[in-house]
């Protein structure tokens, strides 16, 4: 039998300390705030689950959550098919393929607040190229006044910013398909749609699961770009969860409700991501060996 030396556990200690300080302690601080009320001067009073209760009955929070879900849904529904479509039409090899890859990667390299600023200026009716052009077409467009215009601007911005990520991942998936599959499909007289449905899509599924998961989490937590473009307006039309949270925590300095909000926000993302991942991997297993 091998000797067991429990002192080996000491080697894990640095990691434990690191994780404690980087994740556990801050999270517990937030938990601590979420069950207390403060009237300033660092005095705290026990409030139990009061803030959570308030939050669940807060119309403001439900509205923000609704907007958030709608935003993530729209963005995913546009970016995933569009990204796949772009990947299918990218050149397979040679100079043009390299050029495409570089061009596609560019939006991903731009800092978030710069993206916001670019579109903020781009869409302005007085000096922005897009704003002026749309106005010149006779369309009444103004993202600072009209809620729909603001949504369209933000969705288009997000699509511009992030479709590349899906396209690049899908492209990598497509490139890994051996040529023989396409040849066999040709011999079987498969239509273009059948090639996509029965060869390309199944082979891309692994990377698509990752891509969708990443895009869901990111879009659900979006803050910087819409904040720079619309500041959550007009009215509350583009006030997503994170924008609302910052307003609550830093604007109004309501630490207790903001902490409760943070915890719920975190749990929602965790829950949805976990559910999504579990469903996808279970599908995988069902199709695997029995």
């Amino acid at each position: 039998m091998k000797p067991i030396d429990n002192r080996a556990w000491l080697l894990v200690l640095p990691v434990l300390v690191l994780v404690a300080f980087s994740a556990v302690v801050p999270l517990m601080t937030v938990v601590n705030y979420s069950v207390q009320d403060s009237f300033g001067s660092n005095e705290f009073f026990w409030n139990g689950i009061g803030w959570f209760d308030d939050l669940l009955h807060s119309e403001r929070m439900w509205d923000a959550l609704g907007r958030q879900i709608l935003f993530s849904a729209i963005v995913l529904l546009i970016e995933v098919p569009l990204g796949i479509l772009i990947a299918l039409h990218m050149p397979r090899k040679g100079f043009w393929s390299s050029l495409c890859l570089v061009l596609m990667a560019l939006p991903l390299l731009i800092p978030f607040n710069v993206v916001g600023t670019i579109w903020q200026i781009f869409g302005r009716v007085d000096i922005g190229l897009l704003g002026r052009a749309v106005a010149a077409l006779g369309i009444d467009y103004n993202y600072t006044r009209d809620a729909i215009d603001a949504w369209v601007t933000i969705v288009v911005m997000d699509v511009w910013h992030w479709t590349s990520l899906i396209a690049l991942l899908a492209y990598a998936g497509l490139r890994s398909i051996p040529q023989a599959y396409y040849q066999a499909a040709e011999i079987d007289q498969a239509s273009r749609w059948a090639v996509f449905r029965f060869i390309e899509l199944p082979k891309m599924r692994g990377v698509l699961v990752i891509a969708i998961l990443l895009r869901f989490m990111d879009s659900f937590m979006i803050y910087t770009e819409p904040f720079v473009v619309t500041g959550g307006g007009p009215g509350n039309a583009t006030t997503f969860l994170s924008i609302d949270l910052v307003k609550m925590a830093l604007g109004q300095f309501d630490l207790g409700p903001a902490a409760a909000f943070s915890i719920m926000y975190f749990l929602v993302i965790l829950l949805v991501s976990w559910a999504f991942y579990t469903v996808m991997t279970n599908l995988d297993r069902e199709e695997g060996p029995r």
Partner: peptide
């Protein structure tokens, strides 16, 4: 004539099957 019109069958080095079917 394209492959489809020749009405031939080909078996490749690595098995090609439609995984999800």
């Amino acid at each position: 004539a394209p492959t489809a019109a020749r009405n031939i069958a080909q078996v490749f080095q690595f098995p090609v099957v439609y995984d999800t079917l």
